[in-house]
Design a protein around this nucleic acid. Structure first.
Lengths: 148, 148
DNA sequence: TATAATTAGATTGTACACAATTTAATTAAG
DNA sequence: CTTAATTAAATTGTGTACAATCTAATTATA
């Protein structure tokens, strides 16, 4: 495609970042009604997903998996603790490390949550192959973005 | 691919939403150093992009283009006003409507901003065709998500 | 034409997201 | 062994995002 003038690339329609940004916000909205049934926000949900996969994990490790820092995680984890879904205790080997573990209530929530991915995916209106393509391309993009 | 158990879909690696969410945050980080030179945040930048394409536009119209509501836009626009990049005045035909227009300073910023898209795109490490594919698939996804 | 309904923004409250700084604990180096 | 450097979380401050509500203006309707 030929570029008419130097300002064309500034148009919203020619951006890659903007549709990613919008898609992120709008797909998270799809989750909201389902997450509301679990009394979780999306951020709280992905923290719980990490813990359902690997319990007794440090804040640092959660942050590395979710690309979030302690400034975001600390209040989210305190909220989840208040909801009795997790417990926070210092590691005995290294007092700097905070270990997060699921309570029985937190473990129990996994059952109800297991229905969410399918329900949410249906709402996207995507064919499975398109979703896989998108997922792979975006994961590749993230990898590029992280390595600067 | 065969699904081993009902919890597999809950794994972070099997999500579509999560890589979109991460990609959104990480690609916006790519813009940060460039936007910092203009003293703009990403949200302020996309508002300016709208105005560079169409000046003298209402808050409602900006919101429809950016998928943002007044709760988000009002403080952003007040900030841009304080930076002397835009002016806010009520429409004379309809006092409910707030018309946003660029100041000379705001118009002038377009020149410097015009270099950002290319610089940012280089950082993604994507081939142009992959970027176009991603953009189209994501725009389609957004369309699906909006129509519920 | 008076009242109801709608509309555009503003406001309030909650929850991230992240840069920058701080604190406490641990490890490394001289 | 002592000091310096590093590390893990927490804290602080700024800036979104958005639901819910409010206010004022406009339009529709009985």
């Amino acid at each position: 495609m030929i570029n008419i003038n130097k300002y064309d690339l500034l148009k919203l329609d020619n951006q890659l970042c903007f549709p990613i940004y919008v898609a992120s916000k709008e797909i998270i909205k799809i989750y909201k009604p389902y997450l509301k049934e679990l009394n979780l926000t999306y951020t709280q949900y992905i923290v719980m997903m990490v813990l359902w996969e690997e319990d007794n994990i440090s804040v640092k490790d959660i942050g590395e998996k979710l690309y979030l820092d302690s400034g975001t995680l600390t209040p989210v984890l305190k909220k989840l603790e208040k909801l009795n879904l997790i417990e926070r205790r210092r590691s005995e080997e290294d007092e700097r490390v905070l270990i997060i573990s699921l309570t029985e209530k937190g473990k129990g929530l996994k059952e109800k949550a297991s229905e969410i991915p399918t329900k949410a995916f249906c709402k996207t209106g995507l064919k499975e192959e398109d979703a896989l393509l998108l997922k792979d391309k975006l994961s590749e993009l993230v990898k590029n973005l992280i390595n600067n």
